[in-house]
Simulated assay, not measured.
Amino acid sequence: MTASLMTEELFRADAYLTTCQAKVIALVDTGIQLDRTVFYPTGGGQPGDTGSLITADGRVISIVDTQKGETGIVHVPAEGSPSLNIGDEVTARIDWERRYRHMRMHTPLHLLCAVVEGGVTGGQVGESKSRLDFDIPGDKPDKETLTARLNELVQGNHGVQPRWVSDEELAANPNLVRTMSVKPPTGQGRVRLLDIEGVDLQPCGGTHVRATGEIGQLLVSKIESKGKQNRRIVVSLMDP
């Protein structure tokens, strides 16, 4: 069975949900599986959410990571957390401030794809800075020029929303896929895309802001050579 099919992924449709009611459906070595969740699992360079599960009788289980398991999304509890049983009802609550900063950092990486030519060879989303690695022959891009172009797109307040295409549609449009080493998951009949209106369209399962104006001011803080043609571009949020 494909991972996460047993867990309804509420964050896919609405990244702004912070809580939900859920039921424990499995207990595995690494943690707790729920029938539905607002917790995003580590993937696509974006860290898994942290937060808490709260029982009806007031027990609080601190969640320190969220991962994709073999049969669903696994919520990893802190060591020494209260135990749960299958069938228990809980309120799942993410650390919204941390998640929102990840959203404000993930969307700029898609903007970066729109202004930098070349395939993506790797990436990582952080709370205050993130990076993408590009396969770029020739000279390194200019930091000041990229910074200006990114902030122009932020100020344009372009709408951001997910949409879906069939496996066949994606196969017929291979240019939508920018990543060179990791391909989007197929085999379930459809693939989730992130559409930044008039700017960028590519497969992505992560969480994002609703409009680029929410991102805030950006800075291309570093461009490094990581090989003959590999360039690492680091983007930072300017607010503390």
Rank of each mutant, 00 (worst) to 15 (best):
P141F: 10
D239Q: 11
L132F: 15
V199R: 04
A56Q: 14
V24L: 08
G126Q: 08
D142K: 09
I196E: 01
G156F: 12
L146N: 03
C113Y: 01
H110K: 05
T50F: 05
N85C: 09
V74L: 11
A15Y: 01
D142L: 06
R231K: 15
L34A: 06
M6L: 14
R178D: 00
E117C: 03
I196A: 00
Y40D: 01
V90I: 13
G216W: 10
V154I: 12
Q21Y: 03
T147L: 03
M103F: 09
N173R: 15
G138T: 01
P141Y: 09
G45C: 00
Q21L: 11
P47S: 05
A26W: 02
M105V: 00
T145V: 15
V209Y: 07
I73T: 15
D49W: 03
M238I: 11
Y40A: 02
A114Q: 07
S221Q: 07
V76H: 09
V125E: 03
S166I: 10
R59N: 13
L219G: 01
A78P: 06
S166D: 05
N157A: 15
D95F: 09
V125K: 07
E127V: 11
S181V: 14
L219Q: 13
K129R: 15
R12I: 10
L146E: 06
A78Q: 15
T145K: 14
R104F: 10
Q67E: 14
G80N: 06
D88K: 08
T107E: 04
H158N: 13
Q229P: 00
R104G: 05
E89I: 14
G206E: 00
R101C: 10
V90L: 12
L146Y: 06
A3W: 12
R149P: 04
R98G: 05
G159H: 13
L34K: 07
L109M: 15
V64Y: 06
D29H: 10
Q188R: 12
V235N: 03
E97Y: 01
D95E: 11
Q21W: 03
I32L: 08
G126F: 08
L5F: 13
K129V: 06
R192E: 04
I63F: 12
V38Q: 04
N151S: 09
G123F: 03
S225N: 12
T19L: 03
V234E: 09
E79K: 12
L150P: 10
I136D: 04
Q202E: 14
R99S: 07
G119H: 06
G123V: 03
I223K: 00
R36G: 02
G198W: 08
Q161T: 10
Q161W: 12
D29T: 12
D133Y: 02
A78M: 11
F39Q: 05
D29G: 14
P108T: 00
P141T: 10
R93L: 11
D57S: 13
L112W: 11
D49F: 03
S4D: 14
L53G: 06
Q188C: 04
G58R: 08
M180C: 09
L5H: 12
Q67Y: 05
P162V: 06
